[in-house]
């Protein structure tokens, strides 16, 4: 609270709630389904499409987004420093090495979720809205304080899940909680999809998942070994052209910008492809 109390930040243009940045929170309930990787990749993909993007790591105490973005060694101030007034918002925003319109606000590593309140998050997001096109918030796993902080300012929520029963169950819980908060119906990203396993009937298909969750898909990301190596090297896959997962993330970014992007061919099995296309119907593309 009071981050910019006396600090007289540079005068900001009057807030235009209708035209400012869209705040998107990436969440899942379950841990390890790929929230942080998804946030990083969509952020990179949006920035490559000339959007002005801020990524916020809301996973206080377990920060990871900085590592995946390759910005770990540039951290001076973090989100809690902003909230507690030790620095200005601008000072905590780390500019990306290659993409000048991409910023990261890292989480604090030495504090826990209670260091920030939902009201702090709303205030911070509102402060940035006029200057950006997208604010992406990486939500921690779980349904407690950290989750409530991350979704408080969200205009839109993306739920990441894997085609596994346990991950889908947690996604269902999260959707219920978002309904209770009065948020817009979230969109679904199905991550780590293996077409081969689906064909053998060993993995839930996108159809199975949407049948249970009854929300719209905005992306299907195939399992891709390159995700691990690119995350380790701090260079999200969406930088590279040619990888299947990277293309899937770029497609999600374009859909978030309102483009009608057809779903890429996951497999040469035409029956499966047809089912996917049917799932997305005409308008989601």
């Amino acid at each position: 609270m009071g981050a910019n109390g006396g600090a007289a930040a540079k005068p900001q243009p009057p807030r235009k709630s209708a035209t400012g940045a869209k705040v998107i929170t990436v969440t899942s309930g379950k841990g390890g389904v790929g929230k942080t990787t998804t946030t990083a990749n969509i952020g990179v993909a949006l920035a490559r499409l000339d959007q002005r993007v801020v990524l916020i790591d809301a996973d206080l105490g377990l920060r990871n987004l900085d590592i995946i973005m390759g910005l770990e060694n540039r951290i001076v101030y973090d989100l809690v420093d902003v909230v507690e007034g030790r620095c200005k918002l601008r000072q905590a925003m780390i500019k990306h090495k290659q993409l000048p319109e991409l910023y990261l606000i890292p989480a604090a590593q030495t504090r826990d979720k209670t260091a920030v309140s939902p009201a702090d998050m709303i205030k911070m997001a509102d402060q940035m809205r006029p200057e950006f096109d997208f604010i992406l918030i990486d939500c921690p796993a779980g349904i407690e304080r950290g989750f409530r902080n991350a979704v408080a300012p969200a205009d839109e929520v993306l739920i990441v899940t894997n085609p596994e029963v346990s991950a889908v169950r947690d996604a269902d819980r999260i959707i219920g909680l978002l309904e209770a908060e009065g948020k817009k119906t979230p969109h679904l990203i199905l991550n780590r999809v293996k077409t081969e396993m689906i064909r053998k009937g060993e993995m839930l298909s996108p159809e199975d998942v949407t049948d249970i969750l009854a929300i719209k898909l905005i992306g299907i990301v195939p399992e891709d070994e390159n995700v691990v190596s690119s995350s380790n090297s701090g260079m999200p896959l969406a930088f590279l052209d040619g990888s299947r997962a990277g293309t899937a993330y770029r497609n999600i970014a374009r859909r978030l910008m309102g483009e009608n992007v057809p779903f890429m061919q996951l497999d040469d099995n035409s029956g499966f492809l047809k089912r996917i296309q049917r799932l997305f119907g005409g308008q989601t593309g």
Binding site: R169, D170, D172, R173, G176, I212
Partner: peptide
């Protein structure tokens, strides 16, 4: 629809117009 984690208790009957999801 009752999603995972929701519960209803009643000393009478319960009618759900929607699904009752696992959980």
């Amino acid at each position: 629809t009752m999603r995972s984690g929701r519960s209803v208790r009643s000393q009478g009957h319960v009618v759900i117009y929607g699904d009752v999801n696992a959980g």
